[in-house]
Structure formats: structure tokens, C-alpha cells
């Protein structure tokens, strides 16, 4: 399968989990990655800058209207929802919080599923709520591939467990396994 994009949702404990995945991806990893990590609405946009220093990939905060490019990693800015348009551009909104969160993982995953359909991989990492579970269902519904972090290996197991409980997760993997697995199926 020729995957065209990877979406990742993470919450409590997510920064170190993301760091581990991003750090271990090779510089020639071309499948674009779009990330929603829950952050406080008051936080500054430091995450993309921080992660970019660790990686050979281009890691940046998503801009509204931006075209998704290979070899790029996009991160939802604090206090905005990140959506994917069906013409494969990124967009931002300031709508109501979903699952008490802005950015919301469900919003990213549900819109990504409509855009990329079966050529999408969705990954749920550590977190303390159930955001992303509806998104995982939608990705599965459109024939995409779904992965959850092994709850026992997650800093906070609730979010990956909630995703697994939907019955729509294809693979349950530890953090280390996730990186190797996506490299193997995307290259």
C-alpha cells in the first residue's frame, strides 16, 4: 500500500513519545506526518521548534492554507483546530473545543480520513482522555490503517485504550515498534 500521509494524536505524556518517534525517523522518510498534540491554550508555539532541532525532517507548525508536502511534519498550533481539506491543504479554525480540547485529535483524524481515505495511517499515542477514538473509527471506515500505542507502554494508557476499545485498531505496538513499523510500511 502506498500511504500518502500519517496522522498522529497524543496528549498527556505526548511530547516525549513524539520526540522518540520523530528522532528515530530517517532523513529520507518522505510520507508527510500531521500531528495534533494537546497543549494548554496559553502555551507558546515552542513544540515545533523543539522537535525540529532533533530531526532531519522539516518540522513546523501548520499554517492555514498550506499545501501538505513530502518530508514535512506539521504540528497543530496551540488553541487552533487543525483540519485537512480534501484538496490536501491544511486549515485552522477557532471553533468550540471538542473533547475539551483545541486542537482536537478527532477533528484532525476525521477530516484526514475524508481527504486521504485508504491511503492514511492514523496513530493514537499516550493520553488521559478519549479524544481521537471517533477519528480512528472514521479512518477505519474509509479503509485507512490504524495503530494504537500499547497501553502498558504508554505514560498514560487511557487514550490508546479508548481507541482500542472501538474495535477499529489494526495494530497495537510499543513506541519503539511503531517507528520501525511505519518505516517498513511507508518505504
Amino acid at each position: 500500500m502506498n500511504y500518502e500521509a500519517i496522522v498522529i494524536g497524543s496528549s498527556a505524556g505526548g511530547l516525549s513519545a513524539l520526540k522518540s518517534i520523530i528522532y528515530n525517523l530517517p532523513g529520507n522518510f518522505s510520507t508527510p506526518i500531521i500531528i495534533t498534540q494537546h497543549v494548554s491554550s496559553l502555551s507558546e508555539s515552542y513544540m515545533a521548534v523543539f522537535l525540529n532541532q532533533l530531526s532531519q525532517l522539516v518540522i513546523k507548525e501548520a499554517d492555514a492554507g498550506e499545501k501538505i508536502k513530502p518530508g514535512h511534519v506539521y504540528i497543530a498550533p496551540p488553541n487552533f483546530h487543525l483540519l485537512i481539506e480534501e484538496d490536501f491543504t491544511l486549515n485552522l479554525t477557532v471553533d468550540e473545543k471538542v473533547n475539551y480540547s483545541r486542537p482536537s485529535i478527532d477533528i484532525l483524524f476525521e477530516t484526514a480520513a475524508l481527504a486521504f481515505k485508504r491511503k492514511l495511517i492514523g496513530i493514537i499515542l499516550t493520553g488521559a482522555n478519549n479524544d481521537g477514538s471517533n477519528g480512528i473509527k472514521q479512518i477505519k471506515h474509509f479503509g485507512g490503517h490504524t495503530i494504537a500505542q500499547l497501553p502498558a507502554s504508554a505514560e498514560v494508557p487511557i487514550m490508546p485504550q479508548s481507541a482500542i476499545d472501538t474495535g477499529c485498531v489494526d495494530k497495537i505496538l510499543s513506541l519503539e515498534e511503531i517507528t520501525g513499523y511505519i518505516i517498513s510500511i511507508c518505504h
Binding site: I84, N91, T93, E110, T111
Partner: peptide, 8 residues
């Protein structure tokens, strides 16, 4: 309007 939002 951008479609993804209004469609949702």
C-alpha cells in the same frame, strides 16, 4: 468557505 469545516 473552506470546505472541511463547513462540511463537518
Amino acid at each position: 468557505y473552506n470546505k472541511a469545516h463547513v462540511k463537518r
